[in-house]
């Protein structure tokens, strides 16, 4: 009986750990975007689950709503640049979880060894978005980089919070400052 009791106690303790022993997987339950003119800007969750088999995917879509072409400036990749998730809407500086896109691999301005080890050249990338023109890019959110459930915010790695723009030949660059709040919950293993 003592053997059984010991095995039961040890077993119950270990069973309580079941699921906790694996890595945490996540689900994006909501993305709230607040953006102002002159762009129409939206983020769509195309794959909500950030699990071991695959990352969650967010499609960033940008449309020029102005009557004139707009020049958009960023670094690394155009137009959204290197994006990351941070825990506070006021966060600045290094840190955060990199949102990954295959553009990082193909860009000559990004040197990416891993999602934690990367660098960007300071060369500004400027391209024009014609009136009414759309551009979209899919970014991945890998579960092993998520710092826990809760609300996180999308920020640009270099041009805070996302990119800069100007119209015509003006050199007065303005920041495009949407607020993108991503709600992340823990995905249950069982």
């Amino acid at each position: 009986m003592r053997r059984r009791a010991l095995l039961t106690t040890a077993g119950a303790s270990m069973a309580s750990l079941a699921g906790c022993l694996g890595d945490t997987e996540y689900t994006i339950t909501n993305v709230a975007v607040t953006a102002a003119a002159p762009f129409e800007f939206d983020v769509t969750v195309t794959e909500p689950d950030a699990v071991i088999e695959h990352p969650a995917r967010l499609e960033f879509e940008l449309r020029n709503r102005a009557d004139q072409p707009l020049r958009v400036r960023n670094r690394g990749v155009w137009p959204f640049g290197l994006l990351k998730l941070v825990r506070s809407p006021d966060a600045e500086g290094p840190g955060g979880t990199l949102l990954y896109t295959e553009q990082y691999e193909t860009s000559q301005y990004v040197d990416i060894e891993s999602r934690r080890n990367y660098s960007t050249e300071s060369t500004p990338l400027v391209q024009t978005l014609a009136s009414g023109q759309r551009f979209s890019e899919t970014y991945e959110l890998h579960g092993d980089g998520i710092r826990g459930a809760g609300t996180a915010y999308v920020r640009g790695e270099h041009e805070l919070p996302i990119f800069e723009y100007t119209s015509g030949d003006s050199d007065e660059w303005q920041s495009f400052t949407p607020e993108i709040a991503v709600t992340i919950t823990t995905k249950q293993l069982w």
Partner: peptide, 23 residues
């Protein structure tokens, strides 16, 4: 014996540990 079946049950809970590095 109940013990061995208890062990077999717990083994499933103990061993199922999905991990990003493992995948």
């Amino acid at each position: 014996s109940k013990g061995v079946w208890l062990l077999a049950t717990l083994l499933v809970l103990w061993s199922y540990r999905p991990s990003y590095v493992g995948w």
